[in-house]
């Protein structure tokens, strides 16, 4: 290469380019999968209208291109997809992309807050547990972790609602904003934050437990490594040893897991958003399945795959930043 391109940029571009075949694979796969479904959009439409005469149905099919072979339909679909055209949602009477975009923000908000909570608390508690391994504190933290891990998120959501909304009345039962309040500025931010407390807690707890347990194991492993002994032989100890030598190295597997698990976290939003009536992608997925809005469902698969790919690239970059042995080439 003759042009001096920063390695970070080439690396990012390369990772994004590598992800394209995976996205294509997913879209082809899910398109074919949905073609296996009994009944298509027209059937659903007609069913919704309470029946129609066969000629009209045939005309509709031709209009939607559903009379073509599957391969032709696939080709057309992929072409449209390349222009971010996900088709029309007959349930919302809008282009799918419009429906998706109007809800993307809420889901991202929930993702970011949940992951931040899970990561921060998970890593901190895990490190504390490892530092005091096999002590009373460690047993407490580890037991709590196991319980969190075994707690179904929907059950936890109900418990939170029962306690904080029904009994104590501190937090709103659902939604993203107080309906009809029309707050602005910081008042609006505070309102949204209040609405996000329970969903965030319910979604993050299981991952918090994951990161905590992994961090604990990882810290214990790193503490046994040679270079930690070197640091101690130099006279380093206490917080210095923990932060500079142990924690940073111990974070590596946690970052890997964060990337690998992100899609699961996104999947978990289906339940949480449905319970807390948060108008996000997850809730949309649930209603699309119930109402058989397959175009929207395909759009959700596409957009969530793209988000997962982006998050994975970001975690790879964080990993490379943490570990200088990884060379961004």
């Amino acid at each position: 290469m003759s042009l001096p391109v920063p390695p970070l940029l080439t690396y990012t571009v390369r990772r994004v380019v590598q992800a394209i075949p995976i996205i294509i694979l997913i879209m082809v796969g899910s398109f074919l999968l949905i073609k296996l479904a009994p009944g298509d959009t027209v059937d659903a439409l007609v069913g919704d209208m309470g029946g129609a005469d066969p000629a009209f149905v045939a005309r509709l099919r031709a209009e939607y291109g559903l009379d073509e072979s599957v391969m032709v339909q696939l080709w057309r679909y992929m072409l449209k997809l390349a222009q971010f055209d996900f088709g029309w949602s007959y349930v919302y009477e809008q282009p799918v992309i419009t429906v998706l975009m109007s809800r993307l923000g809420n889901t991202m908000l929930l993702m970011v807050s949940s992951l931040m909570v899970a990561f921060t608390f998970g890593v901190t508690l895990g490190a504390i547990a490892a530092k005091r391994a096999y002590s009373w504190t460690d047993n407490m933290i580890s037991t709590l972790g196991l319980v969190f891990y075994a707690m179904p998120s929907f059950f936890l959501s109900l418990l939170l609602i029962l306690i904080f909304s029904v009994k104590l009345g501190w937090l709103p039962v659902g939604g993203i904003r107080t309906i009809g309040a029309f707050k602005t500025g910081w008042a609006d931010v505070a309102d949204v934050a209040r609405h996000l407390v329970m969903p965030t807690a319910a979604l993050s707890l299981i991952y918090l437990a994951f990161y905590m347990r992994l961090m604990r194991t990882s810290v214990l492993e790193v503490m046994d490594l040679d270079f930690v002994r070197t640091a101690r032989a130099k006279g380093a100890g206490g917080a210095r040893l923990m932060f500079h030598h142990v924690m940073r190295n111990a974070l590596l597997p946690v970052v890997t897991l964060l990337g690998l698990q992100f899609s699961t976290v996104l999947g978990g939003s289906v339940i949480i958003e449905t319970i807390f009536s948060l108008p996000g992608i997850g809730q949309l997925a649930y209603t699309s399945v119930v109402k058989r809005d397959l175009n929207t469902l395909m759009g959700i698969i596409a957009i969530s795959s793209i988000i997962v790919v982006i998050v994975n690239v970001v975690t790879d970059l964080v990993y490379a930043w943490l570990d200088p042995r990884i060379e961004l080439k």
Binding site: D226, F227, R229, T230, A231, H244, R248, N249, D323, R325
Partner: peptide
């Protein structure tokens, strides 16, 4: 120490 490979902190 014996192992110069592992005795230094890889991140610093």
């Amino acid at each position: 120490f014996q192992e110069p490979m592992t005795a230094l902190n890889p991140q610093k």
